[in-house]
């Protein structure tokens, strides 16, 4: 894919598990996940619903707390109680299925809030950066609008550039197109493709197999909290080994 292959591991996940207890015993949402995400890579996570793919993604910035295992981000074990998760999250942007823009703030304020309060950027610098990003996604004219005035596709593009305003090292996407009307999926995927091309490290949970094939540098197939199969898009889509992956692909392709 991208020429940027210095292969530095940016996130290292080791034996990650999350379980809930109920009367009959433990239920594993995640069951011993081990994988690495390298700089510049676009990792696409696919799988049936309830397979734990979103839980896995949300564990990477500790929105979900794993019960066992470790996640190392840029050399720091973020699962250890001593690590400053708020500081680390500044370097890990996240884009949600339901956008989660702040409805009481304008688009520009949505984007500049975190850089100003957390990175102590000046208002001018933060706004200059936000406007530049808005221009890149073609929404410069909406800077003073409120989220309720935007379409779903526009909201998700804003959510992406809001995360970019913090200059993250990794962007996590949790089903970014699942809540969109079909005609708006393309505009969001285009932004994500452009990002991938620019060398951004991305981890994407998605049902968009076309995106996975075209943009993914590596694809993980998950089911029942485990990684069932892992490989390049062509390995996964053209030559699936596992039976569950084969039946999954038969249903979605």
């Amino acid at each position: 894919m991208s020429a940027d292959k210095n292969n530095e591991v940016i996130i290292s996940v080791n034996e990650l598990s999350k379980h809930f207890k109920n009367k009959t015993g433990k239920i594993y949402a995640l069951d011993g996940i081990t994988t690495d995400i390298r700089r510049g890579e676009v990792l696409v996570i696919i799988g049936p619903s309830g397979s734990g793919k979103s839980t896995f993604l949300r564990s990477l910035n500790l929105l979900e707390r794993p019960t066992e295992g470790t996640i190392t981000f840029e050399g720091v074990d973020i699962t250890s109680p001593e690590s400053d998760i708020n500081k680390l999250r500044q370097k890990m942007g996240m884009v949600f299925q339901h956008f989660n823009l702040f409805p009481h703030l304008t688009i520009l304020d949505n984007m500049t809030l975190a850089p100003r309060k957390l990175l102590k950027m000046s208002k001018e610098d933060a706004e200059a950066k936000a406007l530049e990003l808005l221009e890149r996604v073609g929404l410069l004219d909406r800077a003073d609008a409120y989220p309720s005035q935007l379409s779903g596709g526009q909201k998700q593009r804003i959510a992406i550039v809001r995360a970019l305003c913090m200059s993250p090292d990794v962007l996590l996407f949790d089903e970014p197109t699942s809540a969109l009307d079909p005609e708006m999926v393309g505009e969001v995927l285009d932004v994500m493709k452009a990002l991938a091309k620019s060398g951004m490290t991305m981890a994407v949970v998605t049902h968009e197999m076309g995106f996975a094939k075209e943009v993914g540098s590596r694809v993980i197939f998950m089911d029942e909290g485990k990684i069932i199969e892992e490989g390049t898009p062509s390995e996964i889509f053209d030559n699936p080994q596992n039976e569950r992956l084969q039946s999954f692909l038969a249903k979605v392709l």
Partner: peptide
């Protein structure tokens, strides 16, 4: 307030109190 608002605040790096102050309480 939808829990997604909390998560969006936390994912940007705000701590719990800041998320409350800047994002949740005003709404």
């Amino acid at each position: 307030i939808d829990n997604g608002q909390f998560e969006a605040g936390r994912s940007l790096g705000f701590n719990y109190i800041q998320t409350m102050y800047y994002i949740v309480i005003p709404q």
